[in-house]
Amino acid sequence: MLVSKVREALICLKAGRVTLGYPFAPNDPKPGFRGKVTVDPDLCFGCGGCANVCEAGVIVVSDREQHYRLLEFFWGRCTYCARCEEVCPEGAIRLSGQFETATDDARDLCMRLEVFMGPCQRCGRCFPPPTPLDKMMTTGFRHGLEGGRA
């Protein structure tokens, strides 16, 4: 009995203090961490790829007028799966290192993005010119070659 108590005490003593200083000291996650999703509005060209694969259904695409498409992101239910990041042809949508997402206002977890598009002459619906498929293959079409990553 005594021996095992001494052993237990030794384990504790050897460990010493292990508590981290967080939240009083910063504790940044390592690279590759899947945190809150961010969108770079300069890079997004509204292809809707992310909305297509998001299994939590938190990205909603709606064509409001002939020239503009609305992308809405509701990250309250995001599962941090990073599928959106995987498919985005422009690297516009990324999982950041932010993990302090607790908020008392649900609006903090929403984002609206209005993207100007070319309307189709026949059906009148938006599409990123010249065809959506071509655009997926093109590098940084909105800002020339310096803008995108692809």
Partner: peptide, 15 residues
């Protein structure tokens, strides 16, 4: 290593 230490410690703990 640590698990072995814990195992040896609790193995004889009569409580």
């Amino acid at each position: 290593k640590e698990v072995v230490a814990v195992r040896e410690a609790v193995a004889g703990d009569s409580a």
